[in-house]
C-alpha cells in the first residue's frame, strides 16, 4: 500500500515536471523516468506484459527518439 502511494506521488511529481520544466533535456529525462515508474505501477497491477512494453517502447525507443530530436534542435540553432 505504501509502495503504491509513493509510486503515485512520484508519477504526479514527474508529470508536473514534464509539463512545467523549461529545459528540454530535463523534460526528456523526466519523461523517461516517468515511463519506468509507470512500468513499476503496471507490475504492481500484475500486468507484466504491459510493463515490459512500457519500458521498451515508452521509455526506450520514444526516449531515444526524443533525445535525438533535442540533438537536431541544438544543431539547427548552431547553424543559424
Amino acid at each position: 500500500m505504501l509502495v503504491d502511494i509513493l509510486l503515485s506521488i512520484a508519477l504526479l511529481w514527474l508529470s508536473i515536471g514534464i509539463v512545467l520544466k523549461d529545459d528540454l533535456f530535463s523534460v526528456v529525462v523526466y519523461f523517461i523516468v516517468f515511463g519506468m515508474i509507470l512500468a513499476l505501477v503496471w507490475v504492481r497491477l500484475f500486468a507484466f506484459d504491459l510493463a515490459l512494453a512500457e519500458v521498451a517502447l515508452g521509455s526506450g525507443i520514444t526516449g531515444a527518439l526524443l533525445l535525438d530530436t533535442i540533438a537536431f534542435i541544438k544543431m539547427q540553432k548552431r547553424e543559424d
Binding site: A47, F48, D49, L52, A53, A56, L57, G60, I61
Partner: peptide, 11 residues
C-alpha cells in the same frame, strides 16, 4: 503466461 510477439519485438 505474460509475454508475446509485441513485447518480444519491442525488446
Amino acid at each position: 503466461k505474460s509475454g508475446g510477439a509485441f513485447v518480444a519485438s519491442a525488446l
